[in-house]
């Protein structure tokens, strides 16, 4: 009887170990899949202007999701943005610009990927640095549309973001203080 009990106990321990290992493996395969999907997208569109506009479009949906305090929508916009950032093609730029753009895109992609898996507080933290990246990118690439750089003096000692409209809707505070901020600069 005692033997039986011991056997059961050791089996339970082993099952637990095997189970936890299987779980770790599962996580891996999921990661690989999403990586492949990113690569596929990269082949589809051509033309760097289009790619800049695609990045801005995803950036704005992210910003709008944060204005609405919608973490789920922001996460989705974050993963889309990561894909369009990776698809950016810098061939037409000078080598100095390419170096700068490589740094910008790499940093921005990491922020976008984190936004895809964070709560809204962290999403906003990453959005702040991401906004600096995207602004620096536009300084090099230019854009078809007029952008408005807006600024909220309250969030984290002052934080900026880009908008396609001159009406201020604050992505750092959302409904809490949606009107906080002002237009700092018009781009284009």
């Amino acid at each position: 009887m005692k033997k039986m009990k011991n056997l059961k106990k050791s089996m339970a321990v082993m099952l637990l170990l095997v189970g936890s290992f299987a779980y770790a493996q599962h996580d891996h395969s999921k990661m690989e899949k999403s990586h492949k999907m990113g690569e596929k997208k990269m082949m589809v569109n051509e033309g760097h202007d289009l790619k800049t506009e695609a990045i801005l479009k995803d950036y704005f949906s992210l910003k709008n999701a944060l204005v609405k305090d919608d973490a789920k929508m922001a996460a989705e916009a974050g993963s889309k943005l990561a894909i369009s950032l990776k698809a950016f093609n810098m061939k037409t730029y000078t080598s100095e610009q390419q170096k700068e753009l490589t740094d910008i895109i790499e940093d921005a992609t990491e922020h976008a990927e984190h936004i895809a898996k964070s709560d809204i507080g962290h999403q906003r933290e990453h959005f702040k640095t991401l906004s600096i990246d995207v602004t620096d990118m536009v300084t090099i690439t230019g854009t078809k549309n007029t952008l408005y750089q807006q600024f909220c003096p309250m969030y984290d000692k002052g934080s900026a973001w880009l908008s396609s409209s001159n009406e201020v809707k604050n992505p750092y505070y959302g409904s809490k203080m949606v009107k906080c901020g002002k237009v700092q600069k018009e781009i284009n």
Partner: peptide, 10 residues
Amino acid sequence: SKRRQKSKLK
């Protein structure tokens, strides 16, 4: 890159 270092430090 300096940019990434800054992000990481933040």
